[in-house]
Nucleic acid binder design. Structure first.
Lengths: 205, 205
DNA sequence: CTCTTGTCTGACAAAGGTGTCAAAAATAGA
DNA sequence: TCTATTTTTGACACCTTTGTCAGACAAGAG
């Protein structure tokens, strides 16, 4: 109790890592507590000792994953820099986060079709604040830097171009990159410029 | 036996429709045979009579869904028309297909993370033939109509922009469209122009 | 050493899902 | 009508998974 024993910490984080691995690999339905326990190298009963049941565990993993993404973006959005720079920064950061968590989009998409409400709840608490970005865009439209494009499409385009490759990753690796993980990574690296470029072309006058 | 009785047809197609509904709603893992049987308004045992087991049923649904998509595209790709027109036609058709099968992308993405091999097999049999499109693009690059852009990114961009909104549909409806299905549909309609425009901007000289 | 506290486990019961079978029900053909 | 075939079903056995519980085990405090 005094030491808040190391093994505690160890087991708990081991479990969280294992759970993240298994959930992203199999989804909430496909994953079993046994598999998570094996991955964490503890008994299934221990798993239940730390996390009462599968749903709770899943929610924790899911919320934690989102937490890792959004704060960075809100920072970028609030920076006092020109929109085009902001877009470049945003895209680069987003692709970096996704590279570190390549399975996350799939997890979100799947969970969203299984139970959208959970996802909304978490996003409401932790989501990206687009409002400020939109205000800036309206201003720059007035200022004559931007053409009068539809903002919803702008937002959807950015997310589409960034996220989709990770959702289709196995497909791309099979059909475009000879199953070479490095080529995929190279592709994402190139993409940082490609996306900014494409988006800026789309909105500038 | 002679008539290949109507009820046969009925039950079988009822099952296929029900299975498609349930699989797209719950994924292969989340779906149960009972749920499919209920949806088709027959007993679970009858379900097994028509389709030996869940895997078989799923594979059929999955292959059939892909079949509905790809032939159209191969036709468009082979049409003897300029690339820009081809892109517009492709995008419009793709968004139409997706509107008719809005859950399909989610199903494919999920199944791909569960078992990529199945997906590859089906795509190999029924997939889109991009080769001819790529040849045409090289030609038009030579011809000076197109700038020297990276073709992989072009392909990924088109698919990203078309498919992603359907993957994120619940999210978009919640946060952009006040949960109004019509607004989403309106958005997709606008998108036909937006995507072609954005893509053409990206590749033309 | 003994007690307490926190960690872990094996064994169990309960629930849910799958697939099979024999037999009932429906249908077509004679 | 009677028979043969197809379709449908209820009942069953089996397996997997979940979640609980009592008790074992380790470690620090007295």
């Amino acid at each position: 109790m005094i030491v808040e024993s190391l093994k505690d910490q160890d087991s708990e984080t081991k479990i969280l890592e294992a759970a993240k691995t298994v959930f992203t690999r199999k989804g909430m339905d496909g994953a079993t507590m046994q598999e998570i326990a094996d991955e964490a190298q503890i008994s299934r009963t221990s798993l239940h000792y730390y996390f009462r049941n599968k749903e709770k565990l899943f929610e924790i993993i899911f919320a934690e994953s989102l937490d890792r993404i959004t704060p960075r973006f809100n920072k970028i959005i609030e920076m006092p820099i020109p929109l085009f720079e902001k877009i470049e920064l945003f895209v680069e950061n987003y692709l970096n986060v996704l590279t570190e968590n390549p399975m996350l989009p799939g997890l979100i998409v799947h969970e969203m079709s299984r139970d959208p409400h959970t996802v909304f709840n978490i996003i409401n608490k932790k989501g990206i604040k687009l409002d400020k970005l939109l205000v800036q865009m309206e201003l720059e439209k007035m200022g004559g830097v931007l053409r009068n494009f539809p903002i919803e499409h702008f937002v959807v385009n950015i997310f589409s171009l960034c996220v989709f490759p990770f959702l289709a990753k196995p497909l791309l690796e099979e059909y475009l990159f000879d199953n070479d993980e490095n080529k995929f990574q190279q592709f994402i690296e190139e993409r940082k410029k490609v996306i900014s470029e494409s988006i800026i072309l789309f909105i500038k006058k």
